[in-house]
């Protein structure tokens, strides 16, 4: 892939095939940590960091460890192992250097381990046969797409705080409807073809 192709691939991962709105990966943190834009941004940054680093590490694990030994069929387990260790590491790192973000993310930080967006990005790399640089770029763009989605949605939710909806819609139902509407808006990008 040349530079232009990588840019196109990143654009596709960021908007056209947005993790949340087109593939429905990572809906748990998307709904759980999107109450305030500041925490949503923190979550997005943490996920971006995890996905990008895990993309690089899992690429190395797959092509330098699993493939030479013919163990491709074990990639899911291997990726989960690597991702779990990485999230642990990031948790310690945040606790030491950014305690405010650590306490704001709370339970959702260890839950990044089971965030399917992280595993799926590692599996997609293998499926699409990306090289190392492409993998890192793809992971970075896709997770930025996640960050964009969660921050935009957090902005929407702060506005909804001031609304006075019927009792049946209050809280979670309205949140889900808003998420659906936002997904429809993002579906406009699916018409963009390269």
């Amino acid at each position: 892939m040349n530079f232009g192709q990588i840019l196109l691939m990143m654009f596709t991962a960021l908007l056209v095939e947005n993790f949340i709105f087109s593939k429905f990966y990572g809906c748990c943190p998307f709904l759980g940590v999107s109450e305030k834009p500041s925490t949503a941004l923190g979550m997005g940054m943490a996920v971006t960091f995890v996905i990008t680093v895990s993309g690089a590490v899992t690429w190395v694990v797959y092509y330098c460890l699993l493939e030479p030994f013919g163990l491709e069929y074990l990639k899911t387990i291997a990726f989960i192992l690597v991702i779990a260790a990485l999230v642990q590491f990031i948790e310690m790192f945040l606790r030491k250097f950014i305690p405010a973000l650590y306490s704001a993310l709370g339970i959702y930080l260890p839950l990044i381990t089971t965030n399917c967006a992280v595993l799926s990005s590692a599996l997609l790399i293998v499926q699409n046969g990306y090289g190392f640089v492409e993998s890192v770029c793809f992971c970075f763009a896709a997770s930025l797409g996640f960050t964009l989605a969660i921050v935009v949605f957090a902005g929407l939710r702060t506005r909804m705080e001031n609304a006075d909806p019927p009792a049946a819609f209050k809280g979670f139902p309205l949140t889900l409807i808003a998420a659906g509407l936002l997904a429809m808006a993002f579906s406009c990008f699916s018409g963009v073809k390269f």
Binding site: L65, F69, L71, L74, A78, L81
Partner: peptide
């Protein structure tokens, strides 16, 4: 596989 995973 067992050896590789144990090492990892």
């Amino acid at each position: 596989p067992v050896g590789i995973f144990a090492a990892m």
